[in-house]
């Protein structure tokens, strides 16, 4: 079927229709006096775990809790940028072996966390990705209204690290916390990378007798650490 024939048909169907203007004013979206508190409430309501890491001495404790809760001794990190953006000190175990796009992970024997975090690397093969028990990434934005974190796929990042593991940790900077979705879509037209994903709580289903089950295909545990 040719494109032009189909377009012609649609054009004819629209011909002579009364012009309707696009509304110019957006309806109001809510604002909050304490967006952090609203974000925490909404995230917890959908089964996510909120951790306040705004004071640097709280960060280690938060990470220990995440490791314990997800029953994991390793964290797979999205990239070095994550550490810089959220002020977490790190060091590469073997800088020479490090290749762009490889998986970065830290090992936490008995759920211990020490700074700087020592990073190892392994090839980003699918079989390696599929075995990860806990991954960590940085959110581009948070949305207070719904307790949502926004992932942006861009250079050096992928879609799977936050989706395949059973537990996922998100770092959100307080200055990236937006009030509502309207602010997100007005300020960030999607389109720089190939995907922008709004994540609200763990993966869930109610397909069987409306019984809620978390962790169907995506992570069953979602942690958000707020940094300043």
């Amino acid at each position: 079927m040719s494109r032009s024939a189909m377009l012609h048909k649609i054009r004819q169907a629209c011909a002579g229709s009364d012009p309707v203007e696009l509304p110019s004013e957006m309806p109001d979206f809510p604002h909050y006096s304490d967006p952090v508190e609203k974000f925490r409430q909404e995230l917890e309501r959908v089964g996510g775990v909120f951790l306040d890491g705004r004071r640097s001495e709280e960060l280690a404790g938060a990470l220990v809790l995440v490791l314990k809760e997800s029953d994991s001794t390793e964290i797979y990190w999205e990239g070095e940028e994550l550490f810089q953006r959220h002020g977490i000190s790190f060091t590469l175990r073997d800088p020479e072996a490090f290749a762009a796009g490889s998986l970065l992970y830290s090992f936490h024997f008995r759920h211990q966390v020490r700074f700087p975090i020592i990073l190892n690397s392994k090839p980003a093969e699918r079989s390696n990705l599929a075995r990860i028990s806990l991954s960590a990434s940085g959110a581009r934005f948070g949305i207070a209204e719904t307790g949502t974190v926004v992932h942006e796929v861009k250079a050096g990042r992928g879609r799977l690290l936050s989706l395949l593991p059973p537990a996922h940790l998100v770092f959100l900077s307080e200055r990236d916390l937006l009030m509502n979705q309207a602010m997100l879509f007005l300020s960030t037209p999607p389109g720089r990378g190939s995907a922008l994903t709004l994540v609200t709580g763990p993966s869930r289903t109610s397909d069987i007798e409306r019984t809620l089950v978390v962790g169907v295909h995506g992570p069953g545990k979602l942690f958000v650490i707020l940094t300043s």
Binding site: V46, T146, S194, A195, L196, T197, L198, T200, S203, G218
Partner: peptide
Amino acid sequence: QKMTSYVNCLNG
């Protein structure tokens, strides 16, 4: 729900 767990916005 107020929001579903995932909203995928895909650009090619």
